[in-house]
Simulated assay, not measured.
Amino acid sequence: MESYKTKGVCSSEIQFEITDNIIQKVVFINGCPGNALGVARLVKGLTLQEAISRLKGIDCRGRGTSCPDQLAKAFEAYLIK
């Protein structure tokens, strides 16, 4: 399982599994459990690029980022590894 340390949001880390560019599993550590679980289920089965295009740039209360945006950043970081 891959891991990404978040910045500027309530969740502290995102863990995820990718197989052949398809999202298999996402787990948010801390943060809002209901929203995190919802986002995790919605991206399951998507390609990384599709999830990034849907989530990137979502803002939470003027923070300049959000848990979905941090997930997009995690996927982008995974792609450039």
Rank of each mutant, 00 (worst) to 15 (best):
C32I: 05
A72G: 08
S66A: 08
Q49L: 06
I14F: 08
R54C: 07
A51N: 01
C60E: 12
V27Q: 14
G31Y: 00
N21S: 10
K56T: 09
A36N: 14
I58W: 12
V27S: 14
R61H: 06
M1N: 09
A36P: 12
T65A: 04
I22R: 01
C67N: 07
F75C: 02
Y4H: 05
K73Y: 14
Q70L: 01
F75L: 12
N21T: 05
K25N: 15
Q70T: 00
G38H: 08
V9N: 02
M1R: 13
K81S: 15
M1Q: 11
K25M: 14
G64V: 06
T65D: 10
G8N: 05
G57P: 01
F75V: 03
K56G: 03
I52Q: 03
C67T: 04
S12E: 15
I14W: 05
S53Q: 13
R63T: 15
C10R: 08
R63F: 13
G62V: 08
I14S: 02
T47D: 11
S11M: 00
L46F: 06
C10K: 11
Q24K: 12
K7M: 05
P68G: 04
G57R: 06
M1E: 08
K25S: 13
I80F: 03
Q24F: 09
F75S: 01
V39P: 03
K25I: 06
G64W: 11
F28G: 03
L79T: 04
T6F: 00
T6C: 11
L71C: 10
R63S: 14
Q15P: 02
E76P: 02
C67S: 06
N30L: 08
V39K: 03
K81M: 13
G38K: 11
F28Y: 10
Q49G: 01
A74R: 00
C10T: 12
Y78S: 01
S53K: 13
I18A: 00
K73I: 12
V9H: 01
E17C: 08
R61T: 10
G45F: 02
A77M: 11
E17I: 10
G62H: 10
A74G: 01
E76T: 07
Y78K: 03
I52Y: 02
P33S: 15
G62T: 07
V27K: 15
K44C: 10
I29K: 14
K56M: 07
K44S: 08
A36F: 02
Q70F: 00
A40R: 11
C32W: 09
I58F: 13
I23L: 11
E13P: 06
G31E: 02
S53P: 08
K73H: 10
L55Y: 00
T65L: 01
L55H: 03
G64F: 09
Y4C: 06
V26A: 02
C32F: 12
G57W: 11
I29T: 14
N21R: 13
N21C: 05
I29C: 09
T6Q: 10
L42H: 08
A77C: 05
A72W: 02
K81T: 14
R63N: 14
K81F: 14
A51Q: 04
G62S: 09
G62L: 05
E50N: 14
L71M: 04
